[in-house]
Amino acid sequence: MWRAFGLLLFGVVGGLALVGCADLSYYRQAVAGQLALLHAARPVVDVLADPATPPALQQRLQQTQALRAFASTDLALPDNGSYRHYADLGRPYAVQNVFAAPALSLEPRQWCYLTVGCLSYRGYFDAEAARELATHLRVAGDDVYVAEIPAYSTLGWLDDPLLNTFTLWPVGRLAELMFHELAHQRLYIADDTGFNEAFATAVGRLGAERWLKQHGTARERAEYQADCQRRGDFLALTGAARERLQVVYASSRTDTMKQVEKKTILTNLREDYQRLKQHWNGYAGYDRWFAHDLNNAKLAGNSTYYRWVPAFFALYQQQNQDFPAFYRAVEALGQLSAVERAARLGALSVSTAHRVLKTEQAEEEVAVIDRRHYAH
């Protein structure tokens, strides 16, 4: 998911002009990494014309250009040079994001940048630098998660290219990712990662469903529906664990007792995941996520990206599934204070607490995880 799905924004590019502030080495690696990525990018038309391009990549690149046109004509997303170029980075990820949270808290650490505000992660092109920060944070006592991220948005400052890290994904997931990143270019609110990511996630999901309904095959629609269902099951599973941890951390227990409870909850979470896989016919796409760094930082990251997605689904329905009207309504939310915005999103979420978007060609629903381990 996040990080089989891996859809996190790398917002540091907005701070590239800040050499002279804070951490010079950090900004230097960001500049160098972005320049290397742009240098590797080639126009899609050139890649298609190159006889050395594998047929599977040629076919998919042609499809990306149809998706790119659809994003602007049908979803009212920015019509610019993004996704008109292709870059092979020679690695399976674009950047590495470092997430951190205290050992007994699900509140993520924040890193602030002058242009884009504060974010709940620190993004790196330089893998060694990411490891060094992660080590430093662990030594200081934090829970840490280093995520390999397949794509990011420069928020329209630059034309983002297609990357080898995601271009050959199943078409539904590819569409969702492209629309997600373009949504960041459409609207971005400083200092509110949860709002930005949930908005982009909702646009990606809604846009992918619309694309598949109009242009996808029955197999592609069923494949995407199964992927979304598994993702929903995963979020229900991890959300239940997160809620249980919140109760423990807010209690009057001693820190030692809290640590014991934390270990038990995370052990139960792994066991419940193994049971959940039985309903997925052995699908193992989340195995790596559960195998390493299962901690507060990883669980807090999930909450950041998905907490307000139901609210944006509800707002989209209120605007009669009209994307321009939806964006205007979201912009109005963005102008509220943080407290007012959260209250409004909370009210919208309640109205759709049990609603699940479905595509027309789904073959069957996958059973939701038995959550008895978390019942009191």
Rank of each mutant, 00 (worst) to 15 (best):
L235M: 06
P102A: 03
V260N: 06
Y224T: 04
L182H: 02
R307H: 13
A200N: 09
K258E: 04
G301C: 13
E128Q: 10
Y305D: 07
G123Q: 06
A66N: 11
R42D: 05
G239F: 01
F323T: 08
L294G: 02
L333A: 02
Q63R: 04
L237G: 00
D233E: 12
G11K: 03
R275P: 15
N302V: 09
Q225M: 08
Q321N: 04
W111H: 05
F326S: 12
A52F: 03
D142S: 07
V248D: 01
L315M: 14
E132W: 01
C228V: 12
Q361E: 15
M1Q: 04
N281Y: 12
L75S: 09
D293P: 12
A338N: 04
A129V: 01
L61D: 01
G301A: 09
W111A: 04
T64E: 06
D159L: 11
V95H: 02
R122W: 08
R109V: 07
N164R: 01
L266H: 03
R275Y: 10
Y327C: 13
L187C: 08
L163Q: 03
Q335D: 15
R173A: 07
L315I: 04
L8K: 08
Q259Y: 13
Y316I: 11
Q63M: 12
L104E: 15
V309I: 13
E128L: 02
T304A: 13
R372L: 15
Y152L: 00
P170M: 13
